[in-house]
Every structure is written in C-alpha cells, then in structure tokens.
C-alpha cells in the first residue's frame, strides 16, 4: 500500500471513528449508522470504544431530577401488563424470540410480499389520509392477484364484560389454517387486547410490531411476542391500530412495511 493510500485510509478511519460519540447516544442518521456498522465489523478497537462510551451514556439519566408521575400511571401500566400473558419459554438471559424453538419447528414463518411495501411509510400530514392510503394499497394488492389468506371484517359487538370488538382487516400472503384473531377495547380501562390463535411466526429476523396511528403518524407501541397483545391507550386519541413486519428484536422507529393488520378506531358509538 502506498503512503498516500495509507493516509487516505487513516483519514477515512478517523472520519468514521468520529461518529462513535453520536453512536453512543443513538443519534446517527441511517447513512452514518450503515457506514459505522461496516467499520465496527472490522475494528476491535472501535467496538471496544463504543462499548465504553455507551456505558457512560447509559448513566447520564442520573443527571435528571426525579419527579413524581401521576398516581394513575401505575394503574394503567399494571392493567396493560396483567392483560398480556407470558410464555413459559421466556427465561432471563436468553435472547428474545418471537416463538419458542418448538414452535419454530412446526410453524413456517410467513414470507411477506415486498410488493405491498416498496418503500417505507412516511409520516402523513393527516391520519385519515393514511388510513385511506392503506385501504387503497390493500385493495390494489387484491386486484393485482397477491395471494390473500383471509380478510376478517368483524362487526362491532359488545361482550358481557363491556369490551367492544373492533373490526379489522388482516392480510397475509399465504393461507393459514385455523387462524383467528380478535381485537377488543375496554373503554373503562382504556385497554386494547389483541388475541390471536394459530398466528404464524414472523419471518426469520423479523417481528410483528404494533402501531397506533394518529394525526401525526404511526406511533410504535410494542412488539408481539405472544399470541396476545395488550395496550393501554385511549381509543379516542387514535385513528387506527395496525401491525407491520419489522426487524427483530425491537422493531423500527417508523414502519418499513405496509401493515398486514389494520383496524380503524372510529369512536365507540360509531360502531353501533
């Protein structure tokens, strides 16, 4: 290698290493993150420094003053978690997976068509536009012959516990036998519960991520790791509940695929 080449490489390394501070804060752009990821794969020293810096960034919350949240917050969180069952396969120290290994042997991950989602979804100026765009994309997908497993349109129906059943559209690329799902909302507890049966695993390296969508755009509200997903939120503040397929294990800050599950959240009295 020439000295000039070494100089260029050194300068390039210095440039990429200068990103380590921002990387510790998690404030990289997509392009920067991509470049740094590639560099980290080749540099033990850079990985070590990033690990060091992240530890330090991780204790910066101690600089804040403690504050008392409202008394109701504890109850809202507790209601939501108690409505979400855990699988027995979860054990501390093991990586989070969407299904157990036993399930993986018998359940074939879905292969979602990218035809439905050629580009990431951008924030829409108004949520209604977003809903109709989704509806239109689903309709186009049907007309284009994309294989749809089934479409559920469940009529609103109050159950004995006062929970309201919310209609939704579920679009899967391949048939799934005995798949069922129900989305309910408890207005008293402001709690959504999505219960599914025989839901196939997300594709390898991906996970189902749930979104609530308002006038600003999609808000990430969690990933599905069980057949049941519970969420404490006020239905009146949102226009839709949607699910997309995103990178595992934590999902994405914004949707990168078209939702395969969409429920419009019209006011409760509008469902009657």
């Amino acid at each position: 290698m020439t000295s000039e080449g070494s100089s260029v490489n050194d300068r390039s390394e210095m440039d990429i290493e200068s990103l380590l501070g921002a990387a510790a804060f998690g404030t990289l752009t997509a392009e920067e993150a991509s470049g740094l990821m590639a560099y980290l794969a080749t540099s033990d020293a850079a990985r070590a420094e990033l690990a060091q810096l992240r530890v330090i960034a991780g204790v910066l919350p101690l600089l804040t003053d403690e504050r008392e949240p409202s008394p109701g917050l504890r109850g809202r969180i507790e209601q939501a978690v108690r409505a979400t069952p855990h699988t027995e396969q979860r054990e501390a120290g093991l990586p989070l997976t969407t299904t157990s290994s036993a399930e993986s042997e018998t359940v074939r991950p879905l292969e979602f068509s990218t035809q439905l989602a050629p580009t990431p979804i951008e924030k829409a100026p108004g949520w209604r536009n977003y809903v109709w765009a989704l509806a239109a994309s689903l309709l186009i997908a049907v007309l284009a012959g994309v294989m749809l497993d089934r479409i559920f349109l469940q009529a609103a129906d109050d159950d004995l516990e006062g929970r309201e059943t919310i209609a939704f559209e579920l679009t899967l690329p391949t048939p799934v036998d005995d798949l069922s799902a129900e989305l309910t909302y408890d207005p008293d507890r402001q709690l959504f519960v999505l219960e599914t049966e025989n839901m196939p695993a997300a594709p390898d390296g991906q996970i189902y991520q749930v979104w609530l969508i308002d006038g600003v755009g999609p808000r990430p509200v969690g990933v599905m790791v069980d057949s049941t997903f519970a969420l404490a939120a006020n239905r009146d503040e949102y226009a839709a509940f949607a699910i997309t397929v995103e990178p595992a294990p934590n999902g994405s800050p914004a949707p990168t695929t078209t939702p395969f599950f969409v429920a419009e959240l019209a006011p409760a009295d509008a469902d009657a």
């Binding site: 979860r90 120290g93 509200v221 990933v223």
Partner: peptide, 16 residues
C-alpha cells in the same frame, strides 16, 4: 414511561 415499562414486560427475557 408507560411504553418503556411495557417494553420491559415484553422484553425482560432479553436482559442478559
């Protein structure tokens, strides 16, 4: 905070 605790609930097994 609510979202964070629900993430902890859903991801506690990923704590290494």
């Amino acid at each position: 905070v609510q979202d964070a605790y629900l993430q902890v609930w859903n991801r506690a097994a990923s704590f290494d």
